[in-house]
Design a protein around this nucleic acid. Sequence first.
DNA 1: CGCCCTCTTGACACTCGTCAATATCGGTGG
DNA 2: CCACCGATATTGACGAGTGTCAAGAGGGCG
Lengths: 249, 249
Amino acid sequence: MFKVDNMHRPRSILLLPQHEHDPCSSCAARGYSVCSAIDDKDLGRLAATAIVRDIAKGETFIEEGDSASDFFNVTRGTVKLYKLLPDGRQQVTGFAGAGHFLGLAVSNTYAFSAEAIEPTRVCRFSRPKLRELLHDFPALEERLLQTACNELVAAQEQMLLLGRKTARERVASFLVNRLETAMPCAGPTDSVALPMTRSEIADYLGLTIETVSRTFSRFKAEKRITTPSNAEVVILDRPWLSGVAAGLQ
Amino acid sequence: MFKVDNMHRPRSILLLPQHEHDPCSSCAARGYSVCSAIDDKDLGRLAATAIVRDIAKGETFIEEGDSASDFFNVTRGTVKLYKLLPDGRQQVTGFAGAGHFLGLAVSNTYAFSAEAIEPTRVCRFSRPKLRELLHDFPALEERLLQTACNELVAAQEQMLLLGRKTARERVASFLVNRLETAMPCAGPTDSVALPMTRSEIADYLGLTIETVSRTFSRFKAEKRITTPSNAEVVILDRPWLSGVAAGLQ
DNA sequence: CGCCCTCTTGACACTCGTCAATATCGGTGG
DNA sequence: CCACCGATATTGACGAGTGTCAAGAGGGCG
């Protein structure tokens, strides 16, 4: 019923002319973000509603507890979503790449913070304007519900990881997951880009930076992965890593 | 107690003495479940679509990985939602009481299992029928989106708990949370009902049964709670517990 | 080239898990 | 009503996995 294929990118978007006055039709995320629920003919309306904004690496553009006045659609770069405890402990609840929709909330305040971890571009929608859009395009609302359901499933998987998996299993899950979701067009070389730091990985997996580092080192020593650079991991033994991620071995 | 399996019987022989032709208008969950998005005048339509089913304590009525053919609305009792690892490790992702909606999924298979932890009643909707309902009642779809967003917020809070809180903070969070969400009409006596076992609490908090028990005992020794029975906790010092839950003290 | 930030590695400590014994609860039947 | 029994919960001793603290290595960029 809600079958969605987020990986599908129409090839035609690459051929679209660059219209300065209509950023949506040429948007890199056009094909697979929630915007794909809107027809080309209505795209002008969408472009008029959205405000494009570039966000520098390290900038926090959503602060937990702040009044939730806007919604965002990431079109370039990567964003880390996180929650903080008063003493500074941090839990990263997810990384949002191009196509991800942020700020869906019933409440009037944001339930999490969002920080760009690399140069990022977002489309901003004010709450009233998104409400109008949802009213005028039921397909958009349906698409948002699909998105929310998918995120709910991912969140439950992450609860399993945080509550019951060992450090080894968590890191393996993270790498395999990155390969599956963030790298849609993975070729024969199972290479995973890691735009985030070890510290951010640790805060995502409920571990410390040292444990993440040690686990990477062990996987390297066991010839399961190599790390050409700190921001890149090559998976040498994907079936084995998948097994560890699932709790076997 | 009589156990009824309605799965393979025509609806007409359902044992509903008082409101056989319209179970919805008298439903205990009518006011606060997703059904509240539907007007009284359309309730007959809803009743005709839903199939009421009673589920015995301990019965698993959704199995992770099974074909997701139905959606459920809990109207009585409590359900535990959980995921398993191959070796038996279990993570409870939530407890669903009256009013909760289960099975929202984009995929064709369930992403979690569901087991009744006390005598439970649910309304069952087949996938195609729910789809019809969503089409005919846009307010219902909007309501489902709100519900999904709320669950997403709760899931992120749980990730913070599982990834970064200590055992003490987890148990305190659990008790305070139960008081806030499951006991809407809490009076001067801050009494929390615990329909689940210690083991299920442990699997929800990412701990062991022993750690949960020890933490309860410590709270008791510190005069923060009392336990009239294993299924009931009285909170004596709510501000202090809230502080611990938030990561202070 | 050199500074600074991030990452890696090691030694040690501590929370929480494991294993085991005992106590308590709740239901059943005499 | 009480005795019995299995299931569930509590408590203790101990150990393992992961966190903490600290030092050193590597990498990027002016």
